[in-house]
Design a protein around this nucleic acid. Structure first.
Lengths: 147, 147
DNA sequence: CCTGAAAAACGACACGA
DNA sequence: TCGTGTCGTTTTTCAGG
């Protein structure tokens, strides 16, 4: 894990569909060499997945909310959240409440329906997202991650 | 926007580096056809970005937290958050507090440092992530997004 | 880590349901 | 209009050095 690897990760976070020739050009290597480095980063688990960000708006989902949840039964709530198509993330947290769940849903009415089903499982507190000044900023290495 | 497009989006959310031939095979089309569909999805803004998920752990960032923030000056706080390398997301919210900020940092000590700098800008409430039962679940279309 | 050749995939065009 | 088939070019892969 040297600086070239960091540059590779930075470029791939920006555009996962770069060809190895383009990527090599950006980091100063030839395509077979950079291909081998990418293969190792995948193998080590540094690269977890190549994914595509799609517009929730364009898919008819206009409302994003975070829901703080104090469930009666944790396992039951996780099962509910994991199987619900509107749930994008669900985090177990320390501090206030037990879970923080990110929901991307069609309208305030479908959000209401989601909250209603939550009410049978515990006590939800809803935070509706108005805008996102920072969205999915790339992760940078901390300093010497030499392994 | 028909069902084939939904399948394309689903496949690309799982693996953004699929070749057009592989993608075509998965959705039942030949490569020129699926290439044209992908081009249109990009043009329409349905596909926003091809990105790579990297392991925060492997890059030396072991602590994830959400911070609810009540800043004295909103613009000042957004500027601070946007320029801080540990901030991955920052959302303006309605409900309790004004901002919800996702921070991925090295240790509890670097988190403490982040919170300290927040304290000069307002009143933060920290929620440390213990685990994530649901992480970045793909977005599915809602029903008839015919445009 | 680079070079070079074979195999595969990409992009563009003309054609057909 | 949308999908198919083909050709020339680019990219990937794998042999070496």
């Amino acid at each position: 894990m040297d600086e070239i690897d960091f540059n590779i990760l930075s470029e791939l976070q920006e555009n996962a569909r770069l060809t190895m020739i383009e990527l090599g050009r950006k980091v100063g290597l030839t395509s077979p060499t950079v291909t081998e480095r990418v293969r190792r980063l995948e193998e080590q688990g540094v690269i977890k997945q190549y994914t595509t960000q799609v517009s929730a708006e364009k898919l008819g989902r206009h409302v994003t909310a975070y829901i703080l949840m104090e469930p009666k039964d944790c396992k039951q709530y996780v099962q509910f959240a994991a199987s619900h198509p509107d749930v994008i993330e669900c985090h177990r947290i320390a501090g206030m409440y037990s879970y923080l769940t990110k929901v991307v849903t069609e309208t305030v009415h479908t959000l209401e329906a989601y909250i209603d089903s939550c009410l049978t499982l515990g006590k939800p507190t809803t935070l509706i997202v108005l805008s996102s000044p920072v969205a999915n900023s790339p992760i940078q290495p901390v300093k010497s991650t030499s392994e």
